[in-house]
């Protein structure tokens, strides 16, 4: 796509300040999860382990960039009355195609990912960005916007997963940080009577962790504070 963007707008460089902002803004002040309230459903369901959060983030990034690009290219053709259906169909077909190809040619990867298929399609971050950005912008900025929002989504997801996996299971990315709690084979902190906080594994704790992240973020940037 870069060539197209270049030829159409020779005056604006590919990584102009404006385009860079499309990537950096969603990381903090316009974060999809903590500010725009998009993509919450899936963010909470899969943050028990860091590994899954990472896999989910990569999948969302892929779908968001590609989907944003396609919608942006079609934006002058889509009838406004059925635009939501069109957006849904585009994202669903993308995900299904990728899922089918993986199942056929990379079955091991597909086994890891198949759980996420439904979660990606129902992820409102994708619909939200289509509607808010790709429908009104050229392909290249849309790609940048997709990339930025996916990154903003990813870091919150991974942060929540780090907190939950470390406190809930005593490990990070599957590596046992605090030792092992298997009876008879205990080592590390568990021999001293440390116990995992099983509460952290429960889904509602994800909400509370996100709530605390919002608290920290808004304490640092007072402009984001809401009235009520």
């Amino acid at each position: 796509m870069s060539e197209v963007a270049k030829t159409k707008e020779p005056k604006e460089p590919l990584f102009s300040k404006k385009n860079k902002q499309l990537v950096t803004d969603p990381l903090t002040d316009n974060n999809p999860i903590t500010i725009q309230v998009l993509g919450i459903c899936s963010a909470l369901a899969i943050t028990v382990q860091v590994k899954q959060a990472v896999v989910m983030s990569i999948s969302v990034m892929f779908v968001l960039i590609l989907g944003n690009m396609i919608i942006s290219m079609l934006r002058n053709l889509i009838p406004s009355r059925i635009r939501i259906i069109v957006q849904l169909v585009v994202v669903a077909s993308l995900v299904i195609i990728v899922d089918q190809l993986l199942a056929a040619f990379m079955p091991d990867v597909s086994e890891q990912l198949s759980v996420f298929v439904g979660l990606i399609i129902t992820n409102c971050i994708i619909m939200g960005r289509f509607e808010a950005f790709a429908m009104a912008n050229k392909p290249w900025p849309s790609i940048m916007d997709g990339f930025g929002n996916a990154l903003g989504y990813a870091w919150i997801l991974v942060l929540v997963a780090v907190v939950r996996e470390l406190l809930g299971s005593g490990s990070l990315y599957g590596y046992k940080i605090f030792g092992s709690a298997i009876p008879g084979e205990e080592w590390g902190l568990y021999t001293m009577g440390y116990a995992n906080n099983n509460m952290m594994i429960l889904p509602p704790m994800a909400l509370i962790v996100v709530g605390i992240i919002i608290w920290v973020q808004r304490s640092r940037n007072k402009a984001l504070i809401e009235e009520h």
């Binding site: 053709l77 889509i78 009838p79 406004s80 009355r81 059925i82 259906i85 069109v86």
Partner: peptide
């Protein structure tokens, strides 16, 4: 006209 019924149907 992108909002006409005919175009919407054809597109769908």
């Amino acid at each position: 006209n992108r909002d006409s019924n005919g175009y919407t149907f054809a597109f769908a």
